[in-house]
């Protein structure tokens, strides 16, 4: 069973990209990257990985139309006819134990979509858990078995329209994996401010958007709970 990761990137060279690519290289077959017009060393970094297949837009699409970017990435990926597709961002990594357990997910025949919980790291080894940030109850669809017979359509929502075509969200049996994803996109206070500025313009009344800049006393954090690797599954 082949597993292809697909990932949009934009000016990631000094963020988490190297860490993410090292991590993915351990358990995926290929990493399809769509560079949304980076102006830093991102292209060079991407191309230094054997597993990366690199595509590039000269002009930035994300800020105007995220679904169009996701769709373009999907189309590049499915051209390669993978068995499974992992949609991951350049600031997300699975917990360590996933490396030996991911293969089992791909042997699955009872499920064709898998959801994961995303833990938003806020500082050092802690993630945020208050209100809409509670990672324990939110399942994100990140892994799907590619079905060429499905005619894909995409959500028209310009923000948060999903990482996959709509049809992959309509599949009734999703496996909710216990493998946790560490999301580092909120770690840096400058990233937070930048994202807040972006979302407040587009979703001004959204409570979750407001909560991005909550003062420290309103932010509830929880220490990461380690989970051991199943050594007997290591090859």
């Amino acid at each position: 069973m082949s597993l292809y990761a697909m990932m949009p990137v934009y000016n990631e060279a000094d963020r988490y990209l190297k860490h993410v690519l090292n991590h993915l290289s351990d358990f995926v077959n290929r990493i399809v990257i769509l560079d949304d017009g980076s102006t830093d060393r991102t292209p060079k970094l991407c191309r230094s990985y054997d597993k990366v297949i690199y595509y590039r837009n000269e002009h930035r699409t994300f800020e105007r139309n995220e679904p169009a970017l996701r769709r373009q990435l999907w189309e590049h990926t499915v051209e390669l006819k993978p068995d499974w597709i992992l949609a991951i961002d350049a600031d997300e990594v699975f917990e360590e134990r996933a490396k030996v357990e991911f293969a089992t997910l791909l042997d699955e025949t009872e499920y064709s979509v898998v959801d994961f919980r995303l833990f938003d790291f806020w500082k050092s080894n802690k993630y945020r858990i208050d209100c809409g940030w509670n990672p324990w109850v939110k399942n994100h669809r990140m892994l799907v078995k590619y079905d060429p017979s499905i005619t894909s359509t995409w959500s028209e929502r310009l923000l948060h329209g999903g990482r996959f075509p709509q049809q992959y969200y309509d599949i009734p049996y999703a496996f909710q994996s216990d493998l946790r994803v560490k999301h580092f996109g909120w770690m840096d206070i400058h990233d937070r401010q930048r994202k807040y500025d972006f979302y407040i313009e587009r979703l001004p009344d959204n409570k979750h958007t407001q909560s991005i800049i909550d003062p420290d006393e309103k932010v509830q954090l929880e220490e990461w709970i380690p989970c051991k690797t199943l050594q007997f599954l290591s090859k």
């Binding site: 089992t104 997910l105 042997d107 699955e108 025949t109 009872e110 216990d178 989970c227 051991k228 199943l230």
Partner: peptide, 10 residues
Amino acid sequence: FFYYWRSPMG
């Protein structure tokens, strides 16, 4: 001690 979960096939 280990804690995790699996699909039925897994």
